[in-house]
Design a binder for these strands. Structure first.
Lengths: 252, 252
DNA sequence: CAAGGCTGGATTGGATACAATCATTGTGTA
DNA sequence: TACACAATGATTGTATCCAATCCAGCCTTG
């Protein structure tokens, strides 16, 4: 209801914003990739004006870095920023889990199961990126169940930035404990165990943080790496076009 | 240093963003006030392009509501949203206080004292709005001392929105316990008492929430009240001009 | 041969013009 | 008189245009 009534006033740049956001969440755009306004404008068939609005919105989300006269590029969180993002999640998400456990209805368990299954399926299909995407979706759905709009917004931003962190600093793409943790969480949530859900969530997020490879080294000098890995920026246009095609043709 | 190095790439709309933000924090613009692009553009001597960017940034901060083809207006948090904002603060700020207590240096105490003094002074000068502004500034400085950029960003947004909540739902403009709480907090922080600072902060924020008048009644029908109290929207231009004058002439 | 300056292309920043939409007022009619 | 409807003015949404800036490659020069 809440989201539905707002749909009528959807800004036109929202589509571009969501398209790039989706590409980030699915790790189809690498951190540091250059986002040229004209290219995106051609992909979506609009003028640069609308693209600029979308890029500024993404910059407010912390996903895009805008440098004056130098354009937009996908953000590259520093190791310290990465740690801070997961520390913030470790504080907020247990509270969200507790509230979700308190308000859960039996019908809500299905949504969580669907997300877990999707993650499980993608994992076994040897598609770790999609698995990570659905993993974040699981956390997002819990936030939706908590019925707390402000917490949900805060977490949404943190989850988006977590995708960047994961593509930069994720150590092992094959982690089984992830699914275990999600299953245990879903069980605690469904049984209304507030304290247990909060504890499991805190441990889960702390485990995620511990699995990051946050070395003090500069992962690679910002400008240099972008020059060394131009694949992302070259294929940015194609990635967005593919994303659009998927949206138009939801029969995935 | 951190902010200084970023200054070179300051976007041009930042000035307008900060101007409107300052007007909100000082409660010179009332929630619900209409923000007409052309007026703001004339005040700042720029075109609507830059103003639109600033308004979109403010919308991402939750301070401005953008409705398609209906323009921008200062947000009016619902009572539920107001409660959620302070619940989020009650969760985040104790953690910030604990981290600040851990990292405090003796020289940092001065900044906190200055903020408390300014609040105290404004309060005794019978200027409750300015007192509220400095009260928020006190919380902001603690976040800066905590040395955690993500928490600081999250709190910054919550503090800005709190200003809207306070101007809508604040019950008693004459609260002495505020200063008491801030003094006790500053003492705990200066002495490095993590647990005490966290506890005091949580109690303080919960007291703030308890002092809000969150009745289920619609505070007033949105359109009607705007018509009954057109002062805010009419003087929006003047408010911004006055704000600019103050910035240009800092000898307040 | 290396270092520094310069020019050309590409890209962004901002202003302006025009189209689209909304709110308000006025008018005609039942 | 009250309601429906159309015209008008105001405001926003988007595209396009031009100036400002940056980047890369080349050239000059010590």
């Amino acid at each position: 209801m809440d989201a539905g009534s707002q749909k009528r006033s959807a800004p036109s740049w929202q589509m571009i914003h969501d398209g790039i956001l989706d590409a980030v969440l699915r790790q189809r755009i690498e951190p540091g990739a250059k986002l040229v306004e004209e290219e995106i404008a051609q992909v979506y068939g609009v003028s640069r004006t609308v693209v600029r609005a979308a890029l500024q919105a993404l910059a407010r989300d912390g996903l895009v870095i805008l440098q004056r006269n130098k354009g937009a590029s996908i953000a590259r969180p520093t190791p310290e920023e990465a740690r801070e993002i997961f520390e913030a999640r470790a504080l907020i998400e247990p509270e969200i889990a507790a509230r979700a456990a308190r308000r859960m209805k039996p019908s809500d368990a299905a949504a969580l199961s669907a997300s877990i299954d999707a993650e499980h399926h993608a994992f076994h299909a040897d598609n770790p990126r999609e698995a990570v995407f659905h993993s974040a979706d699981f956390h997002r759905r819990i936030a939706a169940l908590a019925g707390h709009a402000v917490f949900a917004e805060l977490l949404n931003e943190l989850l988006s930035r977590s995708s960047l962190v994961i593509s930069l600093y994720w150590r092992r793409p094959a982690t089984l404990c992830d699914n275990e943790a999600h299953l245990a969480l879903a069980t605690a949530l469904s049984s209304g165990d507030e304290a247990g859900a909060a504890r499991l969530m805190r441990e889960h997020v702390e485990a995620l943080l511990a699995d990051l490879d946050l070395l003090p080294r500069r992962h690679s000098a910002s400008g240099l790496s972008a020059a060394l890995l131009p694949a992302a920026s070259q294929s940015c246009k194609d990635i967005l076009q593919a994303t659009i095609a998927e949206i138009d043709d939801p029969g995935e």
